[in-house]
Write a protein that binds this DNA or RNA. Structure first.
Lengths: 106, 106
DNA sequence: TATATATGCAACCAATTGGTTTCCCAAATA
DNA sequence: TATTTGGGAAACCAATTGGTTGCATATATA
């Protein structure tokens, strides 16, 4: 299945998992303890996150630590860039308007 | 139904619509012309976008122009903020490391 | 006023999703 | 070696999704 980071962050539980493991890598069991859900459900979410490379599994004995690939989050940031340009330019326009009004008053 | 901006941007067609109307408000028919899909399908996407307040309909005669509420996009930006802090701090750490190595060489 | 156009809405459908249950395998431990 | 523990995978299920078709409504236009 074609996975995509935007689809990955659409689910609220997955977003919570991302936030949780941002600080430190965790095992599926440890993650599941933080939510009102089963390990298997968490495991499925981790599969989705792994498939779109937002998360990387690190095997340590029989445990698997899942680590956030924070650089992948930049893809969202990058997509937002185009809109950031718009809202910044609008702010600038407002700023110019205020400046003009100020000068007119003088 | 509970709508949420992250779920709204999960669909690629919806993301394309958002980008399309970012520049200027458009009618469902005009939007549909840009994609290989029907007006009704676009209309459904616009409904989702409207429900999560990412888009606002403006009635003009029998036409309805859908306008992007760009400020709503800041919600995603805001959620990203926590990760931006992490990747910036990592960059700083790397920067400090390079600085240290440089000094050791001198 | 009759017709054409822009759009929403409901009903329906196939595919996907998030979740559960069950089972299996490998590593740790008694 | 036998048992426990961590975790993946498959089968199944109900709910949701994206899409289509058909119909209703309101505005334009001939």
């Amino acid at each position: 299945m074609r996975r995509d980071i935007f689809q990955a962050i659409a689910d609220p539980t997955r977003r919570a998992i991302i936030v949780l493991i941002a600080a430190q890598a965790m095992t599926p069991n440890a993650i599941a303890e933080h939510f009102d859900t089963t390990r298997q459900a968490v495991s499925k979410h981790l599969k989705v996150l792994t498939e779109c490379e937002l998360v990387q599994p690190q095997h340590r004995g029989r445990e698997i630590y899942y680590q956030l690939e924070i650089d992948k989050m930049k893809e969202i940031d990058h997509w937002l860039e185009q809109f950031r340009k718009i809202w910044e330019s609008r702010f600038e326009q407002l700023d110019n308007l205020l400046e003009t009004l100020k000068k007119q008053q003088q």
